[in-house]
């Protein structure tokens, strides 16, 4: 039952991400809900599963962005590994630390991607990628785990 709920939640996040991508010009909201899935997998799973999911989620993000497959694959994988190593130092029972973890890690991941975009396309560092998106994504993460039902099915208390 819990695993079905988890799968349903992840599908909902993917669905929501596609809708957000479609209306980003109108809403001006830049979120990466797929990253929340990656954070959960990094904390809960082993090294191989984390690597595979980080690469796949990174490639999907690449497809939705400028189209250079591999950039977000690289940055998300690196961040997922670092998340696995450092999450133990955060008290994830407190929402503030969950927010901080998501914000800092996504900011770092997007910064790496931005560096690649700078060298390949000459794109300057974008504040929306480095600050706005991590902030809103972390906020969305906090809102999602506010529900006790979701916390129970994800085993995060």
């Amino acid at each position: 039952m819990k695993s079905k709920f988890k799968i349903g939640l992840f599908l909902f996040l993917i669905f929501a991400q596609i809708i957000i991508n479609r209306y980003v010009r109108v809403t001006k909201i830049n979120l990466d809900l797929l990253y929340l899935i990656l954070v959960y997998i990094s904390i809960r799973s082993g090294i191989l599963k984390t690597a595979i999911w980080a690469t796949l989620i990174g490639w999907v993000t690449d497809f939705f962005t400028i189209g250079l497959v591999g950039v977000f694959g690289f940055s998300r994988t690196l961040t997922a590994f670092l998340l696995q190593e450092f999450y133990k130092y955060f008290d994830l029972r407190k929402r503030f630390f969950v927010f901080l973890l998501i914000f800092v890690s996504l900011s770092f991941s997007n910064l790496i991607a931005n560096v690649f975009f700078y060298f390949i396309y000459g794109q300057s560092i974008k504040m929306s990628l480095v600050l706005q998106q991590p902030f809103l994504t972390a906020l969305a993460g906090i809102l999602i785990i506010s529900s006790s039902k979701i916390r129970e099915s994800l085993d995060v208390h």
Binding site: L48, A54, T55, L68, V69, V71, G73, T77, L78
Partner: peptide, 18 residues
Amino acid sequence: FILIFVLFLNLFIMSFNI
């Protein structure tokens, strides 16, 4: 090793894809 392999794979795909 897993980390290095996956990062290298992504770099390879990136260079192939530019």
